[in-house]
Structure formats: structure tokens, C-alpha cells
Write a protein that binds this DNA or RNA. Structure first.
Lengths: 207, 207
DNA sequence: TCGCTACTTTACGCAGGAGTAGATACGATG
DNA sequence: CATCGTATCTACTCCTGCGTAAAGTAGCGA
């Protein structure tokens, strides 16, 4: 039992395993609280393997960040892209759809969300996270401008408000357990948020 | 010049200096990024002095947190307390007043805000920060319930949404420089947020 | 069956930074 | 003016944890 050897796996697969484990540990312990040994243990792999597939701790964290940011961004994009027969018909429905996609992504991959928004928003990785967030806000601003009129620039503060509201609601939902509900949480949350903000947004259209 | 010794100051004064320096450094570097040496240098004091007046690094950080949380909380409380001749007259005005107080506090003490919400929300101090935030949200929920009807419990998600929206807007404002405006930023931001959320909140009253 | 190499164990180097020990000088008080 | 308490300093110790090197083992394609 001196040397236990694992099954050999394709580098790509191992890398995925390491990334998954890293996201778990980072979401629980934070960037500095997590040790490379802990990540190795969680992945069921030795520490040198973590370095081989994930690189430096910072590189590994950055990789986690990038993966989760991409996932979230692509989810939102595909949720909004199929305009189908929108034609500006029901702006409210489009908003609701985008929000539901956001809440679904967050509630489904809550560890990724935690890493991205709770652990990484401070310290040396504030820049990249901010960039990701700004990407989402920018897209929201485009949509708002298209639906409600005005330039994306004008819509920027409104977009920030909207995204902040969604984050606040998501955090609340993730904070306590709401297993009693039988409805899809994403639907529930999207409905709540739309109810609060839509009348105001609609009013902004006239102005 | 082997040993440069500073003027002796009253412990209370030194402690305030150390706390101020600590908040500055923590807001820039984060809890782990900040070194006690850096805090000492910023305070214009030696490291042992920092330990003498601020205690351990964790204690120092906790003290910063407590001070900023108290400041914010008391600001909000006093902004809402003077109901004067409200009598439920203008709920919208009360909401606007509370929001303006929040934005004023945040824009005035932006470093404190940064420490409290960006740096401390992750890691070992998530608990206390969460508690502070929950205090604010709870108060908001009370007010919402009083103004719009319903129980504070029902208003909780709405309160989280509202607070999240305010945070998002504040972050946007603090992110870029908006020195071109001549109006009070707090007024501006409060107006924006009220415009977005008030119609929806008003509609919730009927339901 | 043979080797290539992914993987493991083990051990260590090293840097950064928290926290401390002992020396030093300031300033109030008699 | 002498003295003492203590605020403050310089210079250290020590620990944690990243990152790596060396040496051996075994899966898997040829």
C-alpha cells in the first residue's frame, strides 16, 4: 500500500474533476481559506496532480471564475436570443424569461454562484469578476434600451438596479431553505421581481 | 536616530487613528491582502502599536466592521424615525427619505462601505456581515409591511429585492466617477430607485 | 510483453506575514 | 530636577501553506 495509483484518465477529464473539486472547496472556504491540499483531497487526487492539471492556485481560481462566468453568461444569452415572434410585442415576457434563466442558473449551480459573487468579489480577483458582472449589466442595458426606448447609456443605472435587485433576491433565496415550495423557484422568483419592477419600467417608457 | 519615537497620544486617540488606517487599507487590499505592517505604516505607527490598540488582525477587522455597521444602521434608523406628521400620509416620501439616507451614507463613507460589503462578505466574517445586512433588510420589511399592508414576513423577499437594488445602484455610482453632476448624488440615486420600484410597490398595496 | 507516461508518495525549500520580546524615550508628577 | 509608568520602537521568532523535486508504481497502447 506504499503507492496507490489511480486509474489513468484523459487530461481533459482530470482537469474537469479538479475544477469541480476546486469550485466546491472555494465556495465553502473562500480563496484564501481553501488549501491546495484540501482541493486535492476533494478531487481524490494528489497535490502534484492538482498542479499538473489546474496550475497555480491563482490560475485554478481564475479558471473556476472563467468557467462559471461563461456558464452564466451563455445561459442568459441563449435565454434572450430566441426572440422568436417578439417584434417588441411583449417586453414584459422577455424580461421575465431572462430573469427566470438567471434564477434557474443561480439556484442550479449555487456553488458556482457563491464562488463568483461572494468569494471573488473582493481582493485580487475583483477585476475579472467586475468585468463579468459588467458584461451582464451591459446586455441588460441593451435590452432595456431596446424595449423601453432611450440609449443603453441612459439605461445603465437602471440595469445596475435591476441586476442588483435580482442578486439580492437570489441571495435571499439561497440563504434559507425553501423546500416547501412545489413551484419552480426560478418561476417564483422571476414573478416576484417582475411584479416589483415592471410597473416602474413601464412608466419609464412614457417619460 | 536609532529609535524614532512618536509623540505620545491618548490611547483612545491612537485607537481611532489605527481604526481609520485599518479601514483604508482593508478597503483597498481586502482582509487577507492587507498586512499589519501596511496598516501600521498607513497609521504612521509601528506594528506593535497596532497590536496594542487594535488587537489581533481579526479583532481589528471585526472592530472596523462593527463601527461601519453601526454607523450605517444608526444613519438609517434616524432617517426613518422622525415620522413627524406622516400618519401614513406619503409612503413614497418616506421610502425616498430612507433611500437618500442610505445613499448619502454610502457615498460619504465609501471606504467603510467597501470593507463592509465587498471585502467582508466572504470568508470567516460572512456571519457578522450577514447579520448586519439582515438587520437592515428586516427594518425595510417592517416599513414595507406597515406602508403597503401585509406581514413583515411576506414583505421579506420584497425587502431583499429593494436592498439589493439599492446596493447595485450604489456600486454602479461608486465604480465610475460622476463628478460632473451638480446635484447631490444621494438625491439623484434615490430618485432613480424610487422611479423604478415605486409603481410596483404601489401596485402591491392593492393586491 | 515492453515501454511510455500519468499518477502516486514523501519530503523539502522557501516566502510572506502574524505576533512577540526587549530596549528606548516621552512626559506627567512629586 | 529626578523618577517612574507606559507608549512606542526595532528586530526578531515561528508558523502556515504554496509550490516543487525525486523516486517509485502501474495502467494502457503497441
Amino acid at each position: 500500500m506504499t503507492t496507490g495509483t489511480r486509474r489513468r484518465l484523459a487530461p481533459e477529464v482530470r482537469r474537469r474533476q479538479v475544477l469541480d473539486a476546486a469550485i466546491e472547496v472555494f465556495s465553502e472556504e473562500g480563496l484564501h481559506g481553501a488549501s491546495m491540499d484540501a482541493i486535492a483531497a476533494r478531487a481524490g487526487v494528489s497535490k502534484p496532480s492538482v498542479y499538473a492539471h489546474g496550475g497555480t492556485k491563482d490560475e485554478l481560481f481564475a479558471a473556476c471564475l472563467a468557467r462559471e462566468a461563461d456558464r452564466l453568461m451563455s445561459t442568459l444569452t441563449t435565454a434572450v436570443l430566441p426572440d422568436a415572434g417578439s417584434g417588441g410585442a411583449d417586453a414584459r415576457a422577455r424580461l421575465r424569461r431572462a430573469l427566470r434563466a438567471f434564477f434557474r442558473a443561480v439556484t442550479t449551480h449555487r456553488q458556482g454562484w457563491t464562488v463568483l459573487y461572494r468569494q471573488a468579489s473582493a481582493g485580487e480577483f475583483a477585476g475579472p469578476v467586475d468585468a463579468a458582472r459588467r458584461g451582464i449589466v451591459a446586455r441588460a442595458a441593451e435590452l432595456l434600451a431596446a424595449e423601453l426606448g432611450g440609449s443603453p447609456e441612459t439605461a445603465l443605472p437602471v440595469a445596475h438596479t435591476l441586476v442588483g435587485a435580482a442578486e439580492g433576491l437570489a441571495d435571499w433565496w439561497l440563504g434559507a431553505d425553501h423546500r416547501s415550495e412545489d413551484q419552480d423557484p426560478a418561476d417564483l422568483l422571476a414573478d416576484m421581481l417582475v411584479a416589483v419592477v415592471w410597473p416602474g419600467l413601464d412608466a419609464l417608457r412614457q417619460a
